[in-house]
Nucleic acid binder design. Structure first.
Length: 349
DNA sequence: AACCCGTGGCG
DNA sequence: TCGCCAAGGGT
């Protein structure tokens, strides 16, 4: 093959699949290139975990979930609180809420749909994930577009209209290079290429199997693509969390609803949110002692959370439970409240 | 369309 | 240090 051969649509997918056959990452949820399709349950679970989340962060969670719940039926039968606790620390908790709903729907219908349209109907599966599962687990041709594919395609075709308006154009371009066979390997190859070669800040064009066909490289500055809109400023918020202790137990509540950290175990707090500061008010009267503060950065707000401690013989109002402090690690606290707990424990010794 | 939703690593 | 970024989905 010569450089001039890499000009047609099929030559791009062929060059990429040849590269993938040599350089595919070995990941726990992935089959070897060209091997039979992996278990749809494992593909689905990994794809949901990987939404906006790095491979390194996902690996231990994937191992824990598949060990605890080896099948979608096992997951469907589990207590929701157990699943939420197992997800704690991974972030974007609506994914865990939808994971439970999806597992139960799939178990009830006797398995995953094997077509993209059917998968798209399941909770937590959007355009990307439905296409990815259809291609990777069921061998269907599907146009799989995530942030890696957007970046690779925007550079390959030198598409320089800004996101998100240009998404349709990028998807159409991705469609033209998606092969009829091995669409799952092709999708994973695009993502491997995007994560290791065609990276956001420092594309390594000298190592790229598609460099001869790349208009972005020819333009001289592929790193500028895709063009992204400016980010909004991140507001600073203040709030308080309350460590209520009794007989070596701490009062743990479960956050309501589908908002921030919804459904997760937590310490009681003063009602802060990404939109506004907390009231500062404690949930019970008493001699509160400040333990200091923790800092935490969310996607669209930064928070300084003061942690206050109280020893109380009385039952706080509202629902909750006394959790043994020696076993606080298993309470399923998301990272913000795990930080607060760590602060309380540090001053307890 | 624009906004909300976590977390940790990296340059 | 700090802004950017990551295998997005729901509303």
């Amino acid at each position: 093959m010569t450089a001039s051969d890499i000009t047609t649509d099929t030559s791009i997918s062929r060059a990429l699949l040849d590269w993938y056959d040599q350089h595919a990452r070995d990941l726990p949820w992935r089959a070897r290139p060209g091997a039979p399709a992996p278990d749809p349950y494992r593909v689905w679970l990994s794809e949901v975990m990987l939404q906006q989340t790095t491979v390194a962060a996902v690996k231990p969670y994937f191992a824990k979930f598949t060990e605890t719940w080896p099948t979608v039926e096992a997951l469907a039968a589990a207590e929701e609180a157990k699943i939420m606790a197992a997800w704690a620390g991974l972030g974007y908790y609506s994914r865990a809420r939808n994971l439970v709903k999806c597992a139960r729907e799939v178990a009830a219908r006797g398995g995953f749909p094997d077509k993209e349209a059917g998968l798209r109907e399941l909770p937590g599966l959007g355009a990307y994930t439905a296409a990815a599962i259809a291609a990777i687990a069921f061998g269907q041709r599907a146009v799989v577009v995530d942030a890696n594919v957007e970046r690779v395609v925007a550079r390959l075709f030198a598409i320089d209209e800004p996101l998100p308006a240009t998404r349709k154009t990028i998807r159409a371009a991705a469609d033209t290079i998606t092969p009829d066979e091995r669409a799952g390997d092709f999708a994973q190859a695009m993502m491997d290429l995007g994560s290791s070669i065609c990276t956001a800040r420092d594309p390594k064009c000298l190592l790229c199997p598609l460099s001869d066909a790349c208009e972005g490289r020819r333009s001289g500055d592929p790193a500028r693509l895709p063009v992204k809109p400016p980010k909004k400023a991140k507001p600073e918020r203040k709030g308080r969390a309350f460590w209520i202790e009794r007989d070596d137990h701490v009062w743990i509540v479960r956050r309501e609803g589908e908002g921030m950290l919804g459904g997760m175990a937590a310490l009681p707090d003063d009602g802060w949110s990404a939109r506004e500061d907390g009231s500062g008010d404690a949930p019970v009267e008493g001699e509160w002692a400040s333990l200091g503060a923790v800092r935490h950065v969310f996607t669209h707000a930064s928070l300084t959370l003061e942690v206050l401690r109280l020893e109380s013989s009385r039952q706080p109002e509202g629902s909750g439970q006394w959790w043994p402090i020696s076993d606080i690690e298993s309470a399923g606290l998301p990272t913000l409240f795990a930080k607060a707990a760590r602060l309380a424990l540090a001053q307890r010794a």
